[in-house]
Amino acid sequence: MNARDRDRLPALDSLRAIAALAVLLFHYTSGYERVVGPHTGPVPNVEWGHLGVELFFVISGFVIAWTLERSSSLTDFTWGRLARLYPAYLAGAMITGIVVFGIGFNPSQIQTRDIAWNAIIGLPQLVKANNLDASYWTLGVEVSFYIMAAAATYALPKLRFEIFCLVWLAVSLAVRGFLPGHVRFQLLLVSNYSPLFVAGAMLFALSPAMRPDRLTVATFAAAIVVAFVGIEPHWLRPTSGAGVCVFVGLVFLTATGRLAILNFRPLVIIGQASYSLYLIHQVVGYWFIFNAERLGVPPIAAIAAATLLVISASIGLRTVVEVPAQRFIRNATRPIVGYEPRAAMADPLQPMQTITRIEGMQPIRGSSDRPKNFE
Rank of each mutant, 00 (worst) to 15 (best):
D13L: 09
L21G: 01
L25Y: 15
Y28M: 14
S30Q: 09
P38I: 06
H39R: 09
H50L: 12
L51N: 09
V53K: 02
I59Q: 14
T67H: 10
L82D: 06
Y86N: 10
A88Y: 05
Y89W: 00
L90V: 15
A91Q: 13
T96W: 11
Q109Y: 14
Q111K: 15
R113V: 11
R113G: 05
R113E: 15
I115G: 13
G122L: 03
G122A: 05
N130W: 04
S135E: 03
W137L: 11
Y154T: 05
L159T: 08
E162V: 03
C165P: 07
C165H: 09
L166T: 11
L169D: 01
S172N: 09
L173C: 12
V175L: 12
G181N: 10
H182G: 00
V190N: 05
N192P: 00
N192F: 03
L196D: 14
V198R: 05
V198E: 10
A205S: 10
P208A: 15
T219D: 03
A223M: 14
V226K: 00
A227N: 00
F228A: 07
E232F: 03
L236M: 10
V251A: 04
A255M: 06
L259Y: 02
A260Q: 15
I261Q: 06
L267K: 11
V268F: 12
S274A: 15
L279T: 00
V283K: 10
V284T: 12
G285L: 03
Y286L: 06
Y286Q: 14
N291P: 02
E293K: 13
V297H: 14
P298T: 07
P299G: 01
P299W: 00
T307P: 04
I315C: 01
L317F: 01
V320C: 07
V321R: 09
E322W: 07
P324R: 13
A325L: 00
Q326V: 06
N331C: 10
T333V: 08
V337D: 07
V337C: 13
P341H: 05
P341M: 10
R342N: 01
A344Q: 02
P351H: 05
G360F: 14
G360S: 11
M361N: 15
R365F: 04
R365Y: 04
S368T: 04
R370M: 04
N373Q: 13
N373S: 10
N373R: 07
N373M: 10
F374K: 06
